[in-house]
């Protein structure tokens, strides 16, 4: 009985986290399309619901009622598993995101490693979908995305090391609290820029959306998918983007901390600050999609390995020597 109580308590907490995440994924898809439309002087989705807010829900309903077509030459088990893996990985990472000092589902002491591990597993959904479709465009898309995600993960890992040097702990709440006096975006600004660009590449967003470059590869790894399975890829991608935004907000923008510790700001609770910071980063993601042309594949690889990796490695050495020389290394 005791175990059942714990179990129901946990399920209740998980639902309280996941339902808002899924609803905000739907809203964020709408926001992305609206921003994209405004940059191009269009209206964007504005018919379903107030300001078109319910557009994504209408789209999802449409996808649910469509037939799921499984190609006869595909590898059926892996074909069905791929969107499930994408969606699951995009959602389980939210377990460690701290919404305030106490509101976190799992306050584990290797939180940032868990986030990094889950985001590095994200490549499997794409590679499985691309391979199991047994068709050339999805396979080419999957290979491109695997190479791209593995390369940009390296620089994200090195950037995380930069932040960890300043914190001295792998716990996400400790990372947030370490920024009480100064958000890391100020001393580590170049790293923040590189993190943002790498996050674009990691989530296959424009200008790095080569895995689904519609001019060359139809729709990349999702070409053979239809109905609800396509929708799961699509929503999983946006959940991943929100996750990368949350990671950026926690690592560089002070997570749930308010920008100034003075009266009107302290009235607003921590979770709202975190959501606002995530939204700010997402707005940047949406703007980049609208204003930047797509990279060529060799330029993408060159940027990842020959520019970002050396730059972030040099910055690790600089941060470490600065902290060591001025005796600022965090010791606990």
């Amino acid at each position: 009985m005791e175990y059942l109580g714990i179990l129901f308590d946990q399920i209740y907490k998980i639902l309280f986290l996941l339902v808002p995440v899924l609803v905000s994924v739907a809203m964020v898809v709408w926001l992305d399309r609206r921003v994209w439309a405004f940059v191009q002087k269009r209206q964007g989705p504005n018919v379903v619901g107030p300001f078109g807010l319910l557009q994504t829900i209408a789209d999802a309903l449409k996808y649910i009622f469509k037939e799921i077509i499984i190609p006869s030459s595909s590898n059926k088990v892996i074909f069905i598993l791929a969107p499930i893996v994408t969606m699951t990985l995009a959602l389980i990472a939210w377990a460690v995101i701290p919404f305030s000092a106490t509101q976190v589902l799992a306050d584990i002491n290797v939180g940032i490693l868990y986030l990094f591990a889950v985001s590095s597993l994200g490549v499997y959904g794409i590679i499985m979908g691309g391979w199991a479709s047994n068709s050339k465009y999805p396979f080419l898309g999957a290979i491109r995305s695997a190479a791209q995600m593995v390369s940009y993960e390296v620089s994200i890992g090195v950037i995380i090391i930069n932040v960890l040097l300043c914190v001295g702990s792998l716990n996400l709440n400790d990372i947030v609290i370490a920024q009480q006096n100064l958000w890391f975006v100020i001393p580590l600004f170049p790293m923040f820029v590189i993190f943002f660009i790498s996050a674009l590449a990691e989530t296959n967003r424009p200008p790095f959306d080569l895995p689904e470059a519609e001019a060359e590869l139809v729709a990349g790894y999702q070409t053979e998918y239809s109905g609800m399975m396509y929708a799961m890829f699509w929503l999983g991608e946006y959940a991943n983007i929100l996750l990368m935004c949350a990671m950026g907000a926690i690592l560089f923008l002070g997570g749930w901390l308010s920008p100034l510790e003075i009266y009107p700001f302290t009235l607003v609770p921590g979770p709202i600050w975190l959501v606002l910071k995530i939204l700010l980063l997402f707005l940047l993601f949406a703007l980049v999609k609208a204003i930047v042309p797509r990279y060529r594949y060799d330029q993408l690889m060159k940027l990842g390995w020959k520019v970002f990796l050396p730059l972030s490695l040099i910055w690790v050495v600089l941060t470490a020597s600065y902290l060591f020389y001025f005796n600022l290394l965090p010791v606990n």
């Binding site: 290797v110 490693l113 591990a117 590095s120 597993l121 490549v123 590679i127 593995v150 993960e153």
Partner: peptide
Amino acid sequence: MIMLIVYVGAVAVLFLF
């Protein structure tokens, strides 16, 4: 976690390749 990051996130992807 390191096992997940290194083996699953990087090495096994290259295997698959």
